[in-house]
């Protein structure tokens, strides 16, 4: 596979969220505001790139029996870096994201990419796979959050788009809308992109 193929496969063709249904927890929880989604996405991209790189670099020296534990510790170390950075530089967003930054550790996408790709491939390819998977995840987050923020607050990235005449949909701020929007997104993509036929 060429580098471009690796990227396209992990970002679109085998997108972690809509294709493999991984990392649903955080893609639902942080999508109330676009800014939160963007920061969360960047945090996941950072963690994915470097955890994939590290895991791939030491893949030949890790005994198979303890590899899960090693992977979790490596991922945990990078998540701590993200968390400390956010707390120092963007304290407000860090507060809003709350436990979901720490929950990047148990985000199945990262473990999934480590197991499925980084544990078997060269470091550079693994990094590209990490970027692809991270961008695929961020894309989903931004799509859902743009709808939720626009209808729920009338704004995008905090800038007021819809005027005072707009009656805010409080359902978009609450939890159920995230479930519905993700389901509709998966539905549309399955029909348009994968052309799924009824079995």
């Amino acid at each position: 596979m060429t580098k471009k193929d690796i990227f396209i496969t992990s970002a679109f063709r085998e997108n972690s969220v809509w294709r493999q249904i991984l990392g649903i927890c955080s893609s639902l929880a942080v999508t109330n505001l676009m800014m939160n989604s963007l920061i969360m996405g960047l945090g996941v991209i950072f963690t994915l790139i470097f955890s994939n790189l590290t895991i791939s670099a030491i893949r030949n020296y890790t005994p198979r029996s303890v590899r899960m534990m090693v992977q979790v510790l490596i991922i945990g170390a990078y998540v701590i870096i993200v968390d400390i950075f956010l707390r120092a530089q963007l304290p407000d967003i860090s507060k809003q994201l709350g436990p979901y930054v720490g929950l990047i550790i148990t985000n199945c996408i990262i473990m999934g990419r480590a197991e499925a790709f980084a544990a078997k491939n060269a470091p550079l390819d693994s990094m590209i796979d990490g970027i692809g998977a991270g961008i695929g995840y961020t894309m989903v987050l931004l799509t859902i959050s743009s709808i939720r923020e626009l209808f729920g607050f009338g704004s995008l990235f905090g800038f007021q788009i819809l005027g005072n005449w707009w009656l805010k949909w409080s359902i978009m701020v609450m939890a159920p809308s995230a479930f519905f929007l993700l389901a509709i997104m998966i539905w549309i993509i399955n029909n348009k992109y994968y052309k799924v036929k009824a079995s």
């Binding site: 159920p176 519905f180 399955n190 009824a198």
Partner: peptide
């Protein structure tokens, strides 16, 4: 169930309705 919704899709919609009830 519509083809594209089978599996995860319909589960998410069901969960959404449950969440709505819990609101």
């Amino acid at each position: 169930i519509p083809a594209g919704l089978q599996g995860a899709g319909i589960s998410l919609i069901v969960t959404g309705i449950m969440a709505l009830a819990f609101v």
